[in-house]
Design a protein around this nucleic acid. Structure first.
Lengths: 220, 220
DNA sequence: AACTGATTGAAACGCGCGTTTGAAATGGGC
DNA sequence: GCCCATTTCAAACGCGCGTTTCAATCAGTT
């Protein structure tokens, strides 16, 4: 009866992982129930223990898989040689924002990662080493190119953290951000593309590589 | 027998609220148990229901009280007239960071607020209106003074959100930040005072009101 | 068709949770 | 000293959770 299903996968293990991703991301480990996950996956409650052992192991596996898929679908250095550093910066920021806030890809993957960042469990160390740290180092290297020897590593890291913070708040505290801003502005200025422009310009101006935000001259 | 207790309050209602604050902040609403809270408060399990009705009402009351205490102890405009805007900016950033990251005051108060920001419940709307929005508007007005008419309100709000994001990440994702930075640097450069200097300078430089981060000239 | 190991299913188990109970303890007013 | 409202306490209740059970079903082999 493989014509009966609409969009569900054949393999029950896959279906459970996918449903678990959504439920864990939405409600967190504690509040998510095995029964809800199994209902969403269309399998019996016993299936979780049959395939994964227990709820904790299912969670670990869900995080591991979500994290590996994220790593796989994010190329680390997509630029042809000779690309100007400021173009790389703009691209980097745009990509991260698109991944964090955009509507491509299932939302629950990054939401699950966010939960780990906000309140790390055992699964977090791998996530940082495989996914976050490489991106952080890429940003540092771009900033190093931009500063051209005028900034020490510690200062580069400070600037990098500033840039990440500016993106992070929209993902982590989006609801409250929405309460602080006019609704129309939220949709026009605080979405991936204009935000990427702003954060990039803000950084370049602070580094003396673009005109200050207060002037209307073209960028240096 | 008021000499008998060491640091515990007399009033059981107070003791429950205080214990609940710590436990809710540490583990979240779902994972926190009424039994743990009562054990920490040194009262019987029935006391929660006797004084507050149920767990949910206790949580609401805990958030409400933590939020009101925060509001009460944060003066909104502590500057004498004529204080330069850039000094106000440095003060504002320093104060927020000190409140978020510093070791004065019980940690659980801001941690509870953070939980509300990350995943708002009913208690969040009041928190935003009474506590966060006024601070946000104060920051906007400081930035307005600094920009001196060269920036429109929407741009001011973008810059304000950038500044808040730079502080917020340290509070919300401190664990992961610690994994990305050398341990000694975390303690020397990413603590309230040096961070406030950095974020202030970053903003002023971006606004063209201080020398770029890449130069070693004194600030303009 | 019969056997066999892997998978599914409905029902139940034990446990810890929030909550309730009803009696015991407490303490101020007469 | 007694009364009565308030507060405390140990014990229990009902429920939903993660987990287990074991019989039913399925799929591949002979």
């Amino acid at each position: 009866m493989r014509a009966g299903e609409t969009a569900a996968s054949e393999d029950p293990k896959e279906r459970i992982l996918s449903a678990a991703g959504e439920v864990f991301a939405e409600r967190g480990f504690e509040a998510a129930t095995v029964r809800d996950i199994c209902l969403a996956a269309g399998v019996n409650v016993a299936a979780v223990n049959y395939y994964f052992g227990d709820k904790q192991k299912l969670y670990n596996e869900t995080v591991r898989q979500a994290h590996q898929r994220l790593v796989a679908q994010v190329p680390l250095s997509p630029w042809p040689e000779g690309t100007p550093a400021r173009a790389k910066l703009r691209d980097f920021i745009g990509n991260v924002l698109e991944r964090m806030l955009g509507f491509g890809r299932p939302r629950w993957q990054t939401r699950l990662m966010l939960r780990e960042v906000l309140q790390p469990t055992d699964a977090c160390r791998d996530l940082v080493e495989d996914y976050i740290l490489p991106q952080f180092q890429l940003l540092i290297s771009i900033l190093g190119d931009l500063a051209d020897g005028h900034l020490e590593e510690p200062q580069l890291r400070q600037v990098a953290m500033s840039i990440i913070g500016q993106m992070f708040i929209y993902r982590a505290a989006g609801d409250v951000v929405g309460m602080l801003l006019p609704a129309d502005e939220m949709q026009s200025l605080h979405t991936p593309v204009p935000l990427a422009d702003h954060i990039t310009h803000y950084a370049l101006a602070a580094l003396g590589l673009a005109s200050p935000l207060t002037s209307s001259e073209p960028r240096a």
